[in-house]
Simulated assay, not measured.
Amino acid sequence: MNAPTPELNDTTSADTLKTGEDRYFITALSRGLDVLACFRSGDSSLSNQQISERCGLPKSTVTRIVYTLTKRGYLIQVEPGGRYALGTATLALGSSMLARMDIRQFARPLMQELADFAGATVALGVRDRLSIIYTEVARSAATLALTLQVGSRIPLATSAIGRAFLASASERERAAIMKLASDMDESAASALQEAIDKALRDYQEYGCATSFGEWQGDVNGIAVGFRSSGAMPALVINCGGPSSSLSKEFLLAEVKPRLVALAKKLESSSLA
């Protein structure tokens, strides 16, 4: 008789996993995935110490994990003594996911049209833990457009795109995210709760999430979320850029109606 399949979600706490109460959870595998996930788009390489600090793991544990991942091709050693970069084996994981996101091809010209209109950057993203990862980016030819790339991580709490996800998420999703933040850091959980409250207020007042100089002091942005169907996760889309060229008034009056219409078009497509 087969064992029942456990329901795994973000509410699983670090304490629960450490005490072994979740007997289906493989701690070593989880730590290995945490090591891979700690690499960010701007990282050329990381030392064992940097990986240890980002993952909250002992350096001795990181050393063993890194050795195993290197043997399997998920990491490569870029210099003697222990700096590591993502290996080619990780490409199969990311490219398979992106290949399933047919909506990116449908969205790209529509996003480019909005980016050109606003003289800004428009990005599509999905949530991973306490961040939004960009899965598609369109930029205007304006020299001031943000230069973020596919794969960039944007914080949930302070960015418009992160707040849009929080506002459009279900109560259960928000509770799971709050639990994840609480397990990591109480101050992060407090900031996240404030972000949820602001996101809900903004949606009620403006019909979108906003971040005016809160993610980065010189960046303004707005964003909306929409639900996907089938195997695709919930999606969020934003429009933002330097505050010197994108005022709050312009974003809300001129860009927001176009961004909302774009999100609805993507949501109603058979690819979402």
Rank of each mutant, 00 (worst) to 15 (best):
I133D: 03
G125M: 01
A272C: 14
L114I: 05
S182L: 07
S190V: 13
L252S: 02
Y74K: 08
A145V: 15
S47Y: 01
G230N: 13
A263C: 12
V137M: 09
E254F: 00
L156S: 07
G213A: 07
S44K: 14
E113C: 00
D116I: 01
S211N: 03
G207K: 08
G56F: 07
L8D: 02
S52T: 02
S270M: 04
I177A: 06
K248Y: 02
T63V: 10
N2P: 13
A85S: 15
D10Q: 13
R23P: 00
S45A: 15
S269C: 03
Q50E: 15
A99D: 13
A181N: 11
Y84E: 10
S45M: 05
K265T: 15
L114F: 05
F250H: 14
N238K: 00
A181F: 11
L36A: 04
S30Y: 15
L166R: 09
F117T: 02
S270A: 13
E79C: 06
A263I: 09
K179I: 03
A99S: 13
I26C: 04
G217N: 11
L69Q: 04
M232D: 12
D116F: 01
Q193T: 02
R172H: 14
S229P: 00
T12L: 15
A167I: 08
G20P: 04
L98A: 10
T61Q: 11
R172Y: 10
M178N: 10
R139E: 13
A145M: 10
Q193D: 09
E267T: 02
A181M: 11
Y206N: 14
A14Q: 07
A141S: 15
P257G: 07
S269T: 07
Y24Q: 05
L8C: 06
L29G: 00
L75Y: 04
L124M: 07
C38A: 13
G20M: 05
A209V: 06
E186I: 08
G94Q: 06
D218K: 11
T16N: 03
T90E: 10
L36W: 04
A169D: 11
S159L: 04
E7T: 13
R139D: 10
D22E: 11
P6F: 02
T135C: 12
A92W: 00
I76H: 10
A253L: 05
S211C: 03
A188M: 12
I222W: 09
S170H: 10
A231M: 12
R227N: 14
R201F: 07
M178G: 04
L36Y: 05
T63I: 05
F212I: 05
I51G: 01
E249T: 15
I133E: 09
E7R: 10
E214N: 07
I51C: 01
D128E: 11
R201K: 11
A145F: 09
A164G: 06
S60D: 15
P4A: 12
V66L: 03
